[in-house]
Design a protein around this nucleic acid. Sequence first.
RNA 1: GGAGGGAUGGCUGAGCGGACGAAAGCGCCGGUCUUGAAAACCGGAGUGCCUUCGGGCACCGUGGGUUCGAAUCCCACUCCCUCCGCCA
Length: 425
Amino acid sequence: MLDLKRIRENEAQVREGLARRGLSTEVIDAVLERDRERRRLLSETEGLKSRRNRTSEEVGALRKRGADTSAIQAEVRALGERIAALDDRVREIRAGLDALLLGIPNVPHASVPTGGGAARNVVLREVGARRAFDFEPRTHVEIGERLGILDLARATRMSGAGFPLFVGAGARLQRALLNFMLDLHVREHGYTEVWPPVLCNSAAMTGTGQLPKLAEDMYRLAADDLYLIPTAEVPVTNIYREEIIARPLPVCLTAYSACFRREAGAAGRETRGIIRVHQFDKVEMVKFVAPESSYDELEKLLDNAEDVLRRLGLAYRVVALCSGDISFAAAKCYDVELWAPGQRDWLEVSSCSNFEDFQARRAGIRYRDAGGKVRFVHTLNGSGVALPRLVVAILENGQQADGSVVLPEAVVPYMGGVSRIEVPV
RNA sequence: GGAGGGAUGGCUGAGCGGACGAAAGCGCCGGUCUUGAAAACCGGAGUGCCUUCGGGCACCGUGGGUUCGAAUCCCACUCCCUCCGCCA
């Protein structure tokens, strides 16, 4: 959520931010108009309340002396009625204002390239050589089914399309990769591991910005005001909701979680295989940092995500998203994409974002600066990394002519020494 | 799921409907003393909003209600604790 004062005082900057996202700035007019009305009514109401408080105290004093207070009591009662009416009106305006503010996206950082659509994203670097094949590389679906480690048909029978079932070495690979990534972030990148709930309430979802805009994309348990999380970002960021963080910043947390996405509106896109699924597993990194350092911390976060791929020896590239492509809550965002030879395409496996104080303001996450002043933290997060597309890349890059798959060395210890998944006889 | 108890500032914990934005202790910050520290003593300190910058308003789990006036009384909800039942 944007600071109302910021909209008031830096109107042009906010309008430019919306425009860079390709959005209308009409909402700003509505916000400013309601804000003016709200402040006008507040002054009036508070003046009346001040009068009521003083007069009411008088009643007490007069009573003590045994004086008749019926006239003055009637006066206060009348004041109370006026106040109640005004309060209702203020509440109404405030609710409307909040609804507007919750629907306004973050202002893109100055360093974000301007433009809309993937074509305007900027490829910053490509790391690692793409493997050359002396045979026609197969897709992960072909590889996985032949190896008997991926059973999409049976998964569809129990849950529908988009719910992968991993078997044998495939299941083991999931567990191995998760442990490999968590160990890396905890032991070498300085993160504290957490294991969060995968159902969160609407307040938490609003805090990180999934609500109100992305309601259609989430699985919801209507009877309980609970949603299945689309990413561990939600529970992990909300750990400090409505708190003044007492620990020294930065606070760096990492978590594995299952993630659930309805992918409404994505029907027909990337439906083959496990590139876009309704349930998947992911290791997430989340940081709570002082505002001065958030852009340095974003670079570190990005490097932590890249480190996963470097150690697995996979070819990847880093993309700076343009202003029309960054997510609702983000001020700046880098995507990390893996090369998948069976797809002949780059697959997004991580999105590293700085939200500045956008989420912190919604979720009420604050800290005390050196001077003891209470301020909103900056929050960041990034995948480190998402599993299904990582598995796609490992299978498609590691495939051999005979159908077997050679695994990256770094996961072999986590696979109980297995370095190659063989075709069953 | 059943029965009872509870929710107050960073923590512990007081609070006859007007004195309470709130005692006290701990912790924290500043000062005195000290070579330095500890102890002792003195002082300071909640959050948000509005403002004509004098000040004002709101906040004691959340939302309603009673009253001239609510941390305090009433109702509902949420969460926590104890006991019983059930369960991995």
